[in-house]
Design a protein around this nucleic acid. Structure first.
Lengths: 354, 354
DNA sequence: TCTCTACTTGAGAGCGCTCTCAAGTAGAAC
DNA sequence: GTTCTACTTGAGAGCGCTCTCAAGTAGAGA
């Protein structure tokens, strides 16, 4: 398979390089018979344009990058990233782009990775998944005027395009659900590592407040979205005798349930649980988790759409898209046992699973 | 941030474009003072070479692609791909390459994806993760002389570079472990969708044979590595009253355990289980799974190393790397309960977890 | 018939880099 | 002083494509 060039295809078809280029790129003003003749040569020879040359000439690589930060050891434990990546990949494919994956494995690599991308013309734009609070990435991107879309909350809301799920509404919904089921001592396992964690804690707080309850600090524990951290947080919570816990990630919920089991506490009879994410762990758990479902894959897909618009100099009118979430009721909250009917006030979707 | 070119940097440093290029690429024969002067200009201006132009000129993109096939809905359920990707990404970073991710989401996309890669000069080489039996990818790659490394078993063993884990030894080890614990009716949940599944079934068969036992067809059920399939396979197995089951993926084991629970069978008291993979689900399970640990991340890393060698025209002497696996003993097999001491004959590693 | 416009094509100048080739320099060896 | 070798640098020719520009053609309108 020797490589053909536009020039050679042109020679074979008896036209110039430019005309072949026009055929390849679907340019309109070409005599039908010429177009056909060129197309035939292309088909017969299996000519494929050299993407690198095209990129260089057009100053557009049609490659977009996905940056996954180092903080995310959760990459293993948590199907969040696979899901997101899947959505992004779908978006990329349907826009005829190529996806470059930049995973950062250590703090040191972080800067190196930024530099290796910026100013090299390799990618047209970026999707950035970090929402760690102290993130250094974003300012750098802004400085270099690299087009990008952020996934999750951002510290630079007014400068940045981003897409997120409605963490505030989700955690409000979860907490409210527990309240409506009659639980009195509702604890939470939150995370203070990132912005979405803040939002989820706020939603919890708001829901309690709206029902005339304050937050008991002793009923708030922290984890890092990982399994182990859920276990430890729950250990810490048990002596406080909560009758329900809103846990801000399904994976942490799994860890928490192990702690409960060791303490001989049954879910939901002794203690109710609502998780967050509705990823596979929610169904793997025993009992299955009532949880908040967020459209993760769609998040990724929309981030690509948004980026594509930005790159086309047709930026969306709004800098942010916030996707709705829904409450999925299974067994861990006690609702199915109690035959209780939960209601929702915020208009967010709500469903009993299957 | 306007973009600088070699030419301009050269002008600023009072040398030619070629000299700047030599400095950038660490070419040896340059007068130290010149090198220093040029380097200073580079540092001050923040010059970064245009990767596209470099690739075009050098006929080397330094991008390698990772192809993840459509069959892998398991992408969600199973941390296998994230782990592998992590390893590949490590390898890519340490070789100063860029990783392009090609996820195929449907059969139709499959061909389109191949075409969009081949002959475009975009990637120097590929890592292919499919080991579906009917895979059409590989022949196409061979035909186009695209350098690639396959992960997993291959139908084209003598034509292909590949790296794999020792599925045969792993399943042998698992089965043997159950035998040595005294179980009599050892079932298996295998998969017949791919080559590694075949190997795992063969390892099971071999272990039984080496202990003078035949395979009872009724004790063999099939799944697809997914959670649900494990559940259904186990349902099918229960009436056969096995006292132990070797399940060829942890995720299927999780599903199987749900079926057992519904049937009021306790693990390991009523039925022992050994899984495969040692990914997070193994620890999330209750009881935790005795399983076969395979070095997935390392697999990815080595695949990159292998590919790099091939691209450097220094192909490894052996076309395949098969990584050893180890038995990790936890609670699901009954060994810890029985205080039994398992032994291994094949020299593969073996350890009791934590 | 002449002009005007729209369509159709090719020539040619890059995009920013690599890489070969040749020329120039300097020190070592004779 | 001459020759040889090794080092050091610049010139120039691409890599394969896009894109502008200008030229040529043809049909509509006056």
């Amino acid at each position: 398979m020797k490589k053909l060039t536009l020039e050679e295809v042109g020679k074979l078809a008896g036209v110039s390089r430019a005309t072949v280029s026009r055929v390849v790129n679907g340019y309109p003003h070409i005599r039908p018979e010429i177009r056909e003749r060129v197309q035939r040569v292309i088909d017969e020879t299996g000519y494929r344009p050299n993407l690198l040359a095209r990129s260089l000439a057009s100053d557009r690589s049609n490659i977009i990058g996905l940056v996954i930060p180092s903080g995310a050891q959760a990459v293993f434990t948590d199907p969040y990233f696979p899901c997101l990546t899947q959505g992004i990949s779908r978006g990329v494919n349907s826009n005829n782009l190529t996806l470059a994956l930049f995973m950062v494995h250590s703090e040191k690599e972080e800067e190196r990775t930024i530099l290796s991308i910026l100013g090299t013309g390799l990618v047209d734009g970026l999707i950035v998944t970090s929402d760690n609070k102290g993130d250094v990435f974003i300012p750098e991107l802004l400085k270099h005027e690299m087009p990008f879309v952020q996934i999750g909350r951002s510290l630079y809301s007014d400068l940045v395009y981003r897409v997120d799920t409605d963490n505030l509404a989700g955690s409000y919904l979860a907490t409210q659900h527990l309240i409506s089921l009659g639980y009195q001592r509702i604890a939470t396992i939150a995370t203070n590592r990132n912005c979405s964690g803040d939002d989820r804690l706020t939603g919890y707080t708001n829901a309690l407040a709206d029902h005339g309850r304050g937050v008991d600090r002793k009923l708030v524990a922290y984890g890092d979205y990982g399994l182990e951290s859920g276990y430890h947080a729950m250990k810490q919570l048990i002596p406080q005798r909560p009758d329900a816990v809103f846990i801000t990630s399904d994976t942490m919920a799994l860890g928490a349930m192990r702690a409960l089991q060791e303490a001989n506490l049954r879910v939901p009879d002794d203690i109710a649980i609502v998780g967050y994410d509705d990823l596979p762990p929610a169904v793997q758990a025993n009992p299955q988790l009532t949880t908040i479902r967020q459209p993760i894959e769609q998040t990724g897909f929309l981030a690509v759409s948004m980026l594509v618009k930005i790159l086309a100099n047709d930026p969306p009118s709004s800098r942010e898209i916030v996707l709705p979430v829904e409450l999925v009721i299974r067994n861990s909250c006690g609702a199915t046992r109690l035959n209780a009917v939960a209601t929702t006030e915020q208009g967010s979707a709500y469903r009993v699973n299957e």
